[in-house]
């Protein structure tokens, strides 16, 4: 359903014409590709400076895909602002990411060996770094 909010009557015809035209025209995807997710997120939060936002706004005026992503994020932002989330009680013990990921990998690939192996390598490195810090 299109926006039906009140607009000055003198623009009603051109508004209706423009609304119909914009909704029915086909947009081509710009050859330059799409905006990085990180940049869209920063734009929606109003965190881009004017020099950064200029090319982003020009791109979104021509690219339906990126504009649609940004619009969904704006809508989501507004919806969440209106209904704040209840604070979830958190576990008192740190959950091991290796356990979480093992479960996920097992679910997706049927085995968790690779993930646990890869993660343990990092974990060993962490422990080594921690121990180095303590020595200092």
């Amino acid at each position: 359903m299109a926006n039906q909010e009140r607009i000055d009557p003198q623009y009603e015809t051109i508004q209706a014409l423009l609304g119909g035209f914009l909704a029915t025209r086909k947009e081509a995807t710009p050859a330059a590709g799409h905006i990085e997710q990180d940049t869209i997120a920063a734009f929606v939060e109003g965190n881009l400076s004017e020099r950064e936002a200029g090319p982003v706004i020009s791109h979104m005026a021509d690219c339906g895909f990126c504009r649609n992503v940004s619009a969904e994020l704006i809508r989501l932002d507004a919806a969440f602002a209106e209904t704040p989330a209840t604070i979830k009680e958190t576990a008192s013990e740190p959950g091991k990411i290796s356990e979480v990921l093992s479960g996920l990998f097992a679910k997706i690939f049927g085995t968790s060996d690779g993930a646990v192996f890869a993660h343990h390598e990092e974990e060993k490195k962490d422990k080594q770094e921690d121990s180095d810090e303590e020595k200092k």
Binding site: Q37, D38, A41, N47, L48, D77
Partner: peptide, 14 residues
Amino acid sequence: TYSGRGSIRGWLRT
């Protein structure tokens, strides 16, 4: 791919 330009939650949404 996160650069810190926006909040991490905004980035997670995308």
